[in-house]
Amino acid sequence: MKNRHIIILVLLIFSIIGCNLSPVKQHLIKVSAHINAMKTKFGTDYLKPDLLSHFPNEIKDTTHLSLLSSPPTCPPSFECRKQFGEVYLITKRDTITENRIKDNYLYKTKYLSDSNIIINLPELKFNRFSIEKCNKEFDNKYPIPYFESYDFNLGEKTFEKDIDGEIYVDYLHTIPNDLMVYVIKAEAGNFWKEDCQEIRHSLNEWKNGYSKGIAVSEEKELMVYWTMIW
Protein backbone atom coordinates (compact mmCIF):
# COMPACT_ATOMS: atom_id res chain seq x y z
CA MET A 1 0.00 0.00 0.00
CA LYS A 2 2.85 2.36 0.84
CA ASN A 3 4.50 1.77 -2.58
CA ARG A 4 1.18 2.43 -4.29
CA HIS A 5 0.93 5.78 -2.52
CA ILE A 6 4.48 6.66 -3.66
CA ILE A 7 3.65 5.84 -7.30
CA ILE A 8 0.48 7.96 -7.14
CA LEU A 9 2.48 10.84 -5.61
CA VAL A 10 5.13 10.66 -8.35
CA LEU A 11 2.47 10.65 -11.07
CA LEU A 12 0.75 13.59 -9.41
CA ILE A 13 4.02 15.55 -9.30
CA PHE A 14 4.66 14.96 -13.02
CA SER A 15 1.09 15.94 -13.78
CA ILE A 16 1.48 19.20 -11.90
CA ILE A 17 4.81 19.94 -13.62
CA GLY A 18 3.25 19.26 -17.02
CA CYS A 19 0.36 21.59 -16.26
CA ASN A 20 2.77 24.34 -15.30
CA LEU A 21 4.71 24.13 -18.57
CA SER A 22 3.85 26.62 -21.29
CA PRO A 23 2.43 25.28 -24.57
CA VAL A 24 5.70 26.24 -26.29
CA LYS A 25 7.78 24.26 -23.79
CA GLN A 26 5.46 21.28 -24.07
CA HIS A 27 5.82 21.41 -27.87
CA LEU A 28 9.63 21.52 -27.63
CA ILE A 29 9.60 18.51 -25.31
CA LYS A 30 7.42 16.56 -27.75
CA VAL A 31 9.64 17.43 -30.72
CA SER A 32 12.77 16.44 -28.79
CA ALA A 33 11.15 13.16 -27.75
CA HIS A 34 10.16 12.41 -31.34
CA ILE A 35 13.69 13.05 -32.61
CA ASN A 36 15.18 10.75 -29.98
CA ALA A 37 12.64 8.06 -30.81
CA MET A 38 13.54 8.35 -34.50
CA LYS A 39 17.23 7.95 -33.66
CA THR A 40 16.33 4.43 -32.55
CA LYS A 41 13.63 3.59 -35.09
CA PHE A 42 14.72 5.25 -38.33
CA GLY A 43 16.63 2.88 -40.57
CA THR A 44 15.49 -0.26 -38.72
CA ASP A 45 15.57 -2.15 -42.02
CA TYR A 46 18.91 -0.65 -43.05
CA LEU A 47 22.42 -1.99 -42.42
CA LYS A 48 24.01 1.34 -41.45
CA PRO A 49 23.59 2.40 -37.79
CA ASP A 50 23.55 5.86 -36.20
CA LEU A 51 21.95 7.54 -39.18
CA LEU A 52 20.61 10.37 -37.00
CA SER A 53 23.56 10.65 -34.62
CA HIS A 54 24.24 14.25 -35.69
CA PHE A 55 20.71 15.41 -34.80
CA PRO A 56 20.40 17.32 -31.49
CA ASN A 57 18.97 15.52 -28.46
CA GLU A 58 17.06 18.55 -27.27
CA ILE A 59 15.31 21.41 -29.07
CA LYS A 60 15.36 24.64 -27.07
CA ASP A 61 13.92 27.22 -29.46
CA THR A 62 10.91 27.33 -31.76
CA THR A 63 12.59 29.77 -34.18
CA HIS A 64 12.38 28.32 -37.73
CA LEU A 65 11.29 25.02 -36.20
CA SER A 66 10.15 22.47 -38.78
CA LEU A 67 10.39 18.67 -38.57
CA LEU A 68 9.51 15.88 -40.97
CA SER A 69 10.13 12.17 -40.56
CA SER A 70 9.28 9.88 -43.44
CA PRO A 71 10.75 6.44 -42.75
CA PRO A 72 10.79 3.66 -45.34
CA THR A 73 8.06 1.01 -45.35
CA CYS A 74 9.83 -2.13 -46.51
CA PRO A 75 11.01 -5.59 -45.33
CA PRO A 76 11.66 -7.07 -42.90
CA SER A 77 9.36 -4.74 -40.92
CA PHE A 78 6.78 -4.17 -43.69
CA GLU A 79 5.88 -5.28 -47.17
CA CYS A 80 7.57 -3.51 -50.09
CA ARG A 81 5.79 -0.16 -50.33
CA LYS A 82 8.51 2.50 -50.20
CA GLN A 83 12.21 1.66 -49.98
CA PHE A 84 13.45 5.16 -49.33
CA GLY A 85 13.04 7.64 -46.50
CA GLU A 86 14.31 10.79 -44.86
CA VAL A 87 14.25 12.88 -41.72
CA TYR A 88 14.89 16.59 -41.58
CA LEU A 89 14.89 19.17 -38.81
CA ILE A 90 15.03 22.92 -39.41
CA THR A 91 15.81 24.99 -36.35
CA LYS A 92 17.69 28.03 -35.08
CA ARG A 93 21.35 28.11 -36.08
CA ASP A 94 23.62 26.42 -33.54
CA THR A 95 27.13 27.78 -34.05
CA ILE A 96 28.69 25.24 -31.64
CA THR A 97 27.36 22.31 -33.66
CA GLU A 98 28.12 24.10 -36.92
CA ASN A 99 31.77 24.70 -35.99
CA ARG A 100 32.20 21.11 -34.81
CA ILE A 101 30.90 19.75 -38.10
CA LYS A 102 32.95 22.24 -40.12
CA ASP A 103 36.04 20.64 -38.58
CA ASN A 104 35.05 17.16 -39.75
CA TYR A 105 32.92 17.10 -42.88
CA LEU A 106 33.18 14.95 -45.99
CA TYR A 107 32.00 17.43 -48.58
CA LYS A 108 30.97 21.08 -48.75
CA THR A 109 29.02 22.94 -51.42
CA LYS A 110 26.80 25.94 -52.02
CA TYR A 111 23.34 24.57 -52.64
CA LEU A 112 22.64 26.95 -55.51
CA SER A 113 25.88 26.16 -57.32
CA ASP A 114 25.88 24.13 -60.54
CA SER A 115 26.41 20.37 -60.81
CA ASN A 116 25.30 19.19 -57.38
CA ILE A 117 23.93 15.67 -56.98
CA ILE A 118 20.52 16.67 -55.65
CA ILE A 119 18.36 13.72 -54.62
CA ASN A 120 14.62 14.08 -55.05
CA LEU A 121 13.68 10.82 -53.34
CA PRO A 122 10.11 10.19 -54.58
CA GLU A 123 11.14 10.91 -58.16
CA LEU A 124 13.74 8.14 -58.08
CA LYS A 125 10.77 5.79 -58.12
CA PHE A 126 7.66 7.56 -59.40
CA ASN A 127 8.78 10.18 -61.97
CA ARG A 128 5.65 12.31 -61.45
CA PHE A 129 7.16 15.77 -60.91
CA SER A 130 10.47 15.74 -62.76
CA ILE A 131 12.90 18.51 -61.69
CA GLU A 132 15.65 19.39 -64.17
CA LYS A 133 18.44 19.71 -61.62
CA CYS A 134 17.60 16.61 -59.59
CA ASN A 135 18.77 12.99 -59.71
CA LYS A 136 21.79 13.58 -61.93
CA GLU A 137 25.29 12.23 -61.43
CA PHE A 138 28.50 14.27 -61.30
CA ASP A 139 32.05 13.13 -60.61
CA ASN A 140 33.66 13.83 -57.26
CA LYS A 141 30.39 14.99 -55.70
CA TYR A 142 28.20 13.59 -52.93
CA PRO A 143 24.39 13.49 -52.74
CA ILE A 144 22.51 16.26 -50.98
CA PRO A 145 18.75 16.73 -50.47
CA TYR A 146 16.33 18.55 -52.71
CA PHE A 147 15.89 21.36 -50.19
CA GLU A 148 12.93 22.86 -52.03
CA SER A 149 10.96 19.91 -50.67
CA TYR A 150 11.74 21.06 -47.09
CA ASP A 151 9.42 23.55 -45.40
CA PHE A 152 11.46 26.58 -44.29
CA ASN A 153 8.31 28.59 -43.53
CA LEU A 154 9.46 31.11 -46.14
CA GLY A 155 6.62 30.51 -48.60
CA GLU A 156 5.66 27.81 -51.08
CA LYS A 157 4.04 27.06 -54.42
CA THR A 158 1.65 24.17 -55.03
CA PHE A 159 1.53 22.08 -58.18
CA GLU A 160 -1.09 19.56 -59.19
CA LYS A 161 -0.91 16.88 -61.87
CA ASP A 162 -3.58 14.56 -63.22
CA ILE A 163 -2.11 11.13 -63.92
CA ASP A 164 -4.58 8.54 -65.21
CA GLY A 165 -7.46 10.31 -63.48
CA GLU A 166 -5.70 10.64 -60.12
CA ILE A 167 -4.60 14.06 -58.79
CA TYR A 168 -1.09 14.29 -57.34
CA VAL A 169 0.19 17.35 -55.44
CA ASP A 170 3.73 18.63 -55.07
CA TYR A 171 5.10 21.59 -53.08
CA LEU A 172 7.96 23.91 -54.00
CA HIS A 173 9.20 25.65 -50.85
CA THR A 174 11.19 28.87 -50.85
CA ILE A 175 14.73 28.32 -49.59
CA PRO A 176 17.44 30.68 -48.28
CA ASN A 177 19.67 31.91 -51.10
CA ASP A 178 22.87 31.47 -49.09
CA LEU A 179 22.32 27.85 -48.03
CA MET A 180 25.69 26.16 -47.47
CA VAL A 181 25.67 22.36 -47.31
CA TYR A 182 28.00 20.09 -45.31
CA VAL A 183 27.81 16.36 -45.98
CA ILE A 184 29.00 14.49 -42.90
CA LYS A 185 28.82 10.99 -44.36
CA ALA A 186 27.55 9.42 -47.58
CA GLU A 187 28.02 6.06 -49.25
CA ALA A 188 26.79 4.56 -52.49
CA GLY A 189 25.51 0.99 -52.27
CA ASN A 190 22.57 -1.21 -51.39
CA PHE A 191 22.44 -1.38 -47.61
CA TRP A 192 18.91 -2.72 -47.23
CA LYS A 193 18.46 -5.84 -45.13
CA GLU A 194 16.06 -7.12 -47.80
CA ASP A 195 16.05 -5.56 -51.26
CA CYS A 196 12.68 -4.74 -52.88
CA GLN A 197 14.32 -4.27 -56.30
CA GLU A 198 12.52 -0.94 -56.44
CA ILE A 199 12.55 1.06 -59.68
CA ARG A 200 15.26 3.72 -59.92
CA HIS A 201 15.01 6.07 -62.92
CA SER A 202 18.57 7.41 -62.78
CA LEU A 203 21.76 7.73 -60.73
CA ASN A 204 23.92 4.78 -61.79
CA GLU A 205 26.53 4.81 -59.03
CA TRP A 206 24.13 6.35 -56.54
CA LYS A 207 21.19 4.12 -57.45
CA ASN A 208 21.15 3.20 -53.77
CA GLY A 209 22.87 4.76 -50.81
CA TYR A 210 22.58 7.21 -47.96
CA SER A 211 23.63 10.74 -47.07
CA LYS A 212 23.52 12.78 -43.88
CA GLY A 213 24.65 16.24 -42.87
CA ILE A 214 23.65 19.82 -42.16
CA ALA A 215 22.96 22.97 -44.14
CA VAL A 216 23.32 26.48 -42.79
CA SER A 217 21.91 29.89 -43.70
CA GLU A 218 23.72 32.79 -42.03
CA GLU A 219 21.25 35.26 -43.54
CA LYS A 220 18.21 33.54 -42.02
CA GLU A 221 20.06 32.26 -38.93
CA LEU A 222 18.85 28.71 -39.39
CA MET A 223 20.26 25.20 -39.63
CA VAL A 224 18.96 22.08 -41.35
CA TYR A 225 19.79 18.58 -40.13
CA TRP A 226 19.05 15.81 -42.62
CA THR A 227 19.42 12.10 -43.24
CA MET A 228 18.14 10.30 -46.33
CA ILE A 229 18.36 6.68 -47.47
CA TRP A 230 17.26 5.10 -50.73
Rank of each mutant, 00 (worst) to 15 (best):
L51V: 08
M1A: 07
S53W: 00
N135G: 01
P71E: 09
F138Y: 14
E205M: 00
I16R: 08
P23F: 12
E79C: 00
E187N: 09
L179Q: 12
I119F: 02
S22V: 12
D139S: 06
E123S: 06
M223H: 02
D139N: 06
T174V: 14
T44C: 02
S32D: 11
D114M: 00
K48C: 02
I199R: 13
K185W: 00
V169M: 13
Y168G: 07
F55T: 07
D151S: 13
I7F: 05
R200H: 10
P143R: 01
K108P: 05
E205Y: 01
I117N: 04
I101F: 12
C74L: 09
Y168C: 07
L68I: 11
Y168L: 11
R128H: 13
V181M: 09
Q83M: 09
M1W: 00
E198F: 04
T62E: 15
G18H: 12
E187W: 00
I8D: 04
S202N: 12
W192C: 05
L179V: 12
P72C: 02
K60G: 09
G213I: 01
N153L: 11
E218T: 01
I199W: 07
N36D: 06
P76K: 02
N140Q: 03
S32H: 08
L28I: 11
H5D: 13
L222E: 07
I163R: 10
A188V: 00
V169K: 15
E86R: 11
L51K: 08
I101E: 06
E132N: 11
G43H: 10
K157C: 10
P56S: 04
F14C: 15
V183W: 07
T109L: 02
L112N: 14
V10D: 03
V169A: 07
Y225E: 06
S113T: 03
K133T: 12
F84I: 05
Y46F: 15
I8R: 06
F147L: 06
L9W: 04
A186H: 03
I13N: 04
D151L: 06
T63E: 13
S217T: 08
D151A: 11
D94Y: 00
S22K: 14
A186L: 05
E194L: 09
S66Q: 13
I8Y: 02
K25F: 07
I119T: 10
I59T: 08
L52D: 08
A33W: 05
T95V: 12
L222A: 05
C196E: 08
L11F: 11
S77T: 15
E58Y: 04
Q83E: 14
V24N: 15
F191G: 03
K125R: 13
L172C: 05
E187H: 02
F14M: 14
L9S: 13
